[in-house]
Design a protein around this nucleic acid. Structure first.
Lengths: 355, 355
DNA sequence: TTGAAAGCGCTAACAA
DNA sequence: TTGTTAGCGCTTTCAA
């Protein structure tokens, strides 16, 4: 049924060994036999059985990616692009990508173990790091190669790519402060996520420098979904002294916050400023378009995958730890400018909308 | 380094065969040896080498999923949820998921071939079908098991799950007609996609029944992204006699269309009706919330995966061909109702906004 | 330049 | 109830 190396051997009258070496272009095989072997292989439609090759080589040429899902409805515009970055890079190196989805927790860790011990992957890509990340602890201790999108608290002795969340959020907060905002609230990510720390810190640093009060009541925590952003924005807007600007920790929550504000009849970009983080395609086409921080997510996927692959091939990656400087993308949701059909018009802006 | 069955054999003084059978709970092994073997296996931290098992069994216990990407920026809120549905189901059956991303075309087909011939997968899940789908032709001809999300033109002799796009779009169009709309335009998907056919047909059937003219100029084609929806909506709105309602073929394009309309100062849900398809979480939190057709994407992923797995295990799936009846989700973007903080209020609606 | 033989880790037919 | 043996498809010493 399927053609094996043995069939080619029989067909050409050569030995299995010779066929194998001919196919791999060893230089101790005569050109004539090489030619013969290759031609018959092609004729017979031979393709190597990767399983057998891998068993022999003790390498799987597969990298694992276990996506942490939160809740059943896992519609993240973020991960699909990341996945494409990782996948395309892996394919370029001839590697396969083994993907699964698991909510953070025991089962998740078990999935890592299982893939390692079943020798199904050569290494892992880890995403969405937690402050103390059991996945990284495990991989480190087990000696399994891995590369990470994100950082953790404590020892950063592993290869990673991350965006500089502190810097990104500083830019956002400084921008809002420059626009005259004084009552700036934020919707933070779940605190166990490492990037929550950075993004929050960026906001706080900017506020402190501007000598603005940091009110704990102004800092809500959302679950990174639109719904979460919506709920938390409502909490903030219900405060006796509501904020004039809301910094959401990601685009999805910003969108939710926008819809909460709009439902109250507020005009986003005039009555209230709202900003996001990630610059997903959603941000550009939101209404109004969302001011946010750009994160080259496809590239990040690509680079983190490349790091891992270099390591797996025994090479030293160009850079082992990459911290990307993010770019602030100013659109209309913060009221800084308002572009209609390409023209930029400024919008009447109140200094302190609610006072 | 890693523990194999041989190590256990040596340790227990049993033969390799006995160990293997003990671990698999064969009933021709004495309880005492079973116990002994299992305990030592556990002690030594044994986990089977799946590669070896699979080579022997000639089954990979892996299913392939090659995502067709369109353009570099592939942020699809749709696929991640689908992926979760497929992935979780596969995991439940003990199957792995091999994922890659390829733009439709030669390389894509080559990827299928390579995975089949390298015996890396037992079967495939195919998504986003084209009218004449070379992937399905190939898999059919190669005798590789597969299950499909979507249908194709011609012979439907394979297992699939699909939503009834005709019905879904009929519901949308009929709803708009009932609301008094007479100038209904649509932004269709790329025509090579099979679901374009169904969704378009649904619209046309409803319009024909209502004895409304179907103007070719009223049917734009978008690339399923927000940007595409934005561009095409602008084309439609620039017409001398612009539509009073725009039916977009998916949520993303609907969102883009909304932002185009809003940029012109139109109030969506009052001056113009806009509808989507998919009911991604984006729809619910759009501003205004988007009237759309619900598609249980997680479930679809789960069911299509289950079908394939049943087939791979030699069983007959419960249902081989599933056509889901979609549900119309009426929100505010079509002007039918307008819900504020849970209360439903009707909005003044113009019969023919532009006349 | 080529081939025989061992072995990657496992399963399964067969014999004992 | 257990062990011997062969073999999945391949790579790689080692000898010829």
């Amino acid at each position: 049924m399927t053609v094996t190396i043995k069939d080619i051997a029989r067909e050409t009258g050569k030995s299995i060994t010779t066929v194998s070496r001919a196919l791999h272009d060893y230089d101790d095989v005569s050109d004539s036999t090489k030619k013969l072997v290759r031609e018959t292989a092609a004729e017979m439609g031979y393709t190597p059985n990767l399983l057998a090759q891998r068993l022999q080589k003790q390498r799987t040429e597969t990298i694992g990616l276990i996506l942490p899902t939160f809740g059943p409805r896992f519609a993240d515009p973020f991960f699909s692009e990341f996945l494409a970055g990782v996948g395309n890079t892996a394919a370029r190196y001839g590697y396969d990508l083994l993907v699964s989805t698991k909510a953070p927790g025991k089962e998740e860790l078990a999935a890592y173990r299982q893939k390692v011990q079943g020798r199904q992957v050569d290494g892992f890509i880890v995403v969405r790091t937690r402050r103390h990340d059991p996945r990284i602890d495990y991989l480190r201790q087990a000696g399994v190669p891995f590369a990470v999108f994100g950082r953790v608290e404590g020892e950063l002795d592993f290869p990673f790519v991350d965006e500089d969340g502190v810097d990104g959020m500083r830019q956002v907060a400084e921008h809002l402060i420059a626009l005259g905002h004084r009552r700036i609230a934020c919707i933070a990510p779940p605190p166990e996520l490492m990037f929550a720390e950075y993004r929050l810190r960026g906001v706080k640093e900017a506020l402190t420098e501007a000598e603005l009060m940091i009110d704990e009541g102004y800092c809500a925590t959302g679950d990174l979904t639109q719904h979460g952003g919506y709920k938390q924005a409502n909490v903030l807007l219900d405060l006796p002294d509501p904020p004039s600007a809301i910094i959401a920790a990601n685009d999805l929550m910003a969108l939710g916050a926008m819809s909460a504000a709009q439902q109250r009849g507020l005009v986003v970009g005039r009555d209230i400023a709202i900003t996001g983080f990630d610059d997903t395609p959603l941000a550009e086409h939101a209404h109004p378009p969302l001011t946010t921080v750009h994160q080259p997510i496809y590239q990040i996927g690509s680079v983190v995958c490349e790091m891992l692959l270099e390591i797996l091939q025994g090479r030293e990656p160009d850079q082992r730890q990459v911290l990307l400087k993010p770019t602030l993308i100013v659109r209309q949701s913060c009221g800084a400018n308002h572009s209609v059909n390409g023209a930029t018009v400024s919008i009447p802006k109140k200094e302190a909308p609610y006072t």
